[in-house]
Design a protein around this nucleic acid. Structure first.
Lengths: 143, 143
DNA sequence: ATTTCTGCAAAGCTTTTGCACCACA
DNA sequence: TGTGGTGCAAAAGCTTTGCAGAAAT
């Protein structure tokens, strides 16, 4: 029952603050991202955008995702065997379980795992800058 | 102080058993993999192979890696921001810490993390087929 | 003698980029 | 009105593939 009302306005504010122009294609893409609860790839975002504004280009989608990624407003995930997929960066950090049959993505979080990761890195003499934890699985059937 | 003596012979046996021909380029590539303790990408394997047999092609490297991967003899890792890198599949499962400055890869293993992953997947109604855990970090400087 | 494999070149797929025009501030 | 953004097409980077000739069994 999560609500993500008018996330687009937040994006716009952030963008303006960063000194970037709010153009028609950008507004369209932000609108789509604000309604997005899944993890679409660039082509899928492009398709959804074209439905709103047929003149939009895939380049602009990529450029906008790059822009938002650099600002930290979205995350890009390069899951196995496919193009990068995006999600908004609102909310807390989490990792992903990918359904290898459907491509569905389930988010999860484990403080314990994060803590263990830190310990491991430290013991190896490293500080973690970021990490990637992806579980690829198959839905267990009842019975 | 690990030793990996004559790993090539094992590969060859496996390949013959699988009904594949041991050709000159394959023997060359297997020889290189057997001496490899790092995580080279296809181009790097190609370079090392060319030093032994200048007539080898990059396609053959890719095809051989695919073959060995399908047989489970090597693992392919798609670390962030670069081409896939390979390692032989001998030895036990482990995860990777990637030095974001040098690209160096350090292997580590945590039974506790594996166990937590299983629990998480189960609680979400999934069985894990495989997973990917990569820590991207920077060497902590003394002091 | 077959069947598999190879090198080469071309194509595939995702993502980035050069450029001339367009539009936001 | 000037700078930044856009669409288009081309290119880049990695990997796969079609094909005709070569080599392993």
């Amino acid at each position: 029952m999560k609500k993500r009302p008018q996330k687009r306005l937040d994006y716009e504010k952030e963008l303006r603050r960063a000194g970037v122009r709010i153009t028609r294609p950008r507004r369209t893409i932000l609108g789509i991202l604000s309604q997005t609860e899944d993890h679409p790839d660039a082509l899928e975002i492009f398709r959804r955008a074209v439905a709103v504004d047929p003149s939009i280009s895939l380049s602009t989608v990529y450029r906008t995702m790059k822009l938002l990624g650099d600002m930290g407003a979205i995350h890009r995930h390069a899951f196995e065997g496919g193009p990068s997929r995006f999600e908004h960066a609102s909310g807390e950090h989490h990792d992903h379980l990918i359904d290898i049959e459907t491509g569905d993505v389930i988010e999860f979080k484990s403080d314990r795992i994060e803590q263990l990761q830190d310990e491991i890195a430290k013991s190896l003499g490293y500080d973690i800058v970021h990490h990637r934890l992806e579980l690829y699985g198959r839905k267990r059937r009842a019975g």
